[in-house]
Nucleic acid binder design. Structure first.
Length: 407
DNA sequence: GAGTTTGAAACT
DNA sequence: CAGTTTCAAACTC
């Protein structure tokens, strides 16, 4: 298996995924669909395609794809890792492809994209951005973000990372303490978590999900270039005035904001609460954590590393763990999914992971205490230490019980 | 469900 | 690096 793994990309960085869940999903995906396609979609870890990653461009021809596909399938059989993944069947069956649009109130169980032109190989694609493969519930067209096209995915990813090393890093950086805070301080305290790059909202006043900060449940910060910020999780102004509970808004009347905001916040908070919980869980909080759950993508293969089950983890940032069937996994720390995806108690997952965890793992996510304040940022892949840690994690995957089957 | 709006990502 | 275009999600009707 290879992993892409990663974390959370930004968008989702905030959006997150529950670790546990993500894991499952991936796992599930692998197995389930697979009954049908196992041969094609694979997790093979060691493939090296001719054009592989390095040279790949995001757009490959069908032919290329086919080739890759074939190769992959071949190796796949050999892949030791497969064992790792728990078999779950039919995670998807219940969920036919649907449009990703989520109805209000609908839990966003897991990520599903609806890409039509990007082939799911650009950051526009939530799945791709999150470091996960598209799976059945996705309504994407011409999707290349599948295990079959692992090489393409990895190559594309590299390309994107070369352009922006942090492209797949979690967008929202949370501090360990964030969880509790949000709830109480929510409105005015921005606190611990912030969007890495900040938003650039012009019309949404950072009160809609168009705003990545808002979507991630974090306040706007000095990094934001938003206009008329009213982010209920923390306005840019407040951030700037740090400490001073400045009520001042740049443009607009506060009345509305305050009142409405609070209401909104309350609701949001409720949702976020869940997130926070996740956050509490070290795993979710940490950008790196997500990796665990993801199915690793290829990186290794291209580099000639031996495929290890855990491997995936090592990949620079990607998390891709295969999810075939289920829904896309989401590892990201916070976002939408988290809320919904997480059905399972955070604790459970970690526990499991722990069991398998090797002491050496660079990051301990399992322990509640371990918190990472700052995201790993661009280097993930490179640091050996992490890889090892992740490996462990992955191993655990197999044993991982499905937390909550969604659908 | 179709159409519009929005802002990130990608491109020039 | 700034401006423009493309894209898909979020949102509205």
């Amino acid at each position: 298996m290879r992993n892409w793994c990663l974390l959370s990309p930004g968008r989702d960085s905030s959006r997150c995924i529950l670790p546990g869940i993500g894991l499952h999903l991936n796992a599930l995906a692998i197995n389930s669909k697979d009954s049908k396609k196992i041969k094609h979609e694979t997790f093979s870890s060691s493939i090296t395609l001719p054009g592989s990653a390095a040279s790949f461009h995001s757009r490959t021809t069908d032919r290329e794809l086919d080739e890759s596909l074939t190769l992959v399938s071949t190796e796949r059989d050999n892949d030791p890792n497969e064992n790792v993944v728990p078999l779950v069947e039919d995670f998807n069956q219940t969920s036919p492809k649907k449009k990703r649009r989520r109805l209000e109130g609908e839990p966003e169980a897991c990520k599903r994209c609806n890409c039509k032109k990007s082939k799911c190989l650009k950051l526009y694609c939530e799945c791709f951005a999150a470091g996960v493969y598209c799976i059945e519930p996705c309504a994407c067209q011409d999707c290349f973000n599948k295990p079959i096209h692992e090489d393409t995915v990895l190559a594309t990813r590299k390309q994107i990372e070369s352009r922006n090393p942090l492209a797949f890093a979690p967008k929202v950086i949370r501090s360990s303490e964030s969880a509790p805070e949000i709830r109480d301080e929510s409105i005015k305290t921005p606190a611990s978590a912030r969007h890495k790059r900040g938003c650039n909202c012009k019309k949404s006043t950072c009160l809609k999900k168009y705003c990545e900060c808002y979507q991630g449940g974090v306040g706007c910060s000095i990094n934001c270039r938003c206009e008329g910020c009213k982010n209920v999780f923390g306005r840019k102004d407040d951030f700037l005035n740090s400490g001073s509970a400045s009520m001042e808004m740049e443009d607009e009347p506060e009345d509305e904001t305050e009142a409405s905001v609070k209401n909104g916040v309350d609701k949001i908070l409720q949702k976020t609460e869940i997130q926070n919980n996740d956050e509490q869980n070290p795993n979710s909080a940490l950008p790196t954590t997500p990796l665990r759950f993801y199915r690793p993508l290829v990186q290794f293969s291209s580099k000639g590393k031996p495929p290890r089950s855990f491997l995936g983890i090592g990949s620079s940032s990607g998390l891709y763990t295969g999810h075939r069937h289920g829904k896309p996994n989401i590892l990201r720390p916070q976002s939408k999914f988290e809320k919904q995806c997480q059905n399972a108690p955070d604790d459970d997952i970690p526990e499991i992971l722990r069991e398998n965890h090797s002491p050496s793992s660079g990051i301990k996510t399992s322990s509640p205490n371990s918190k990472r304040v700052s995201p790993p940022q661009s280097n993930w892949g490179s640091s050996p230490g992490r890889r090892s840690g992740r490996k462990l994690i992955l191993q655990s995957i197999p044993s991982f019980p499905s937390l909550t089957p969604q659908h």
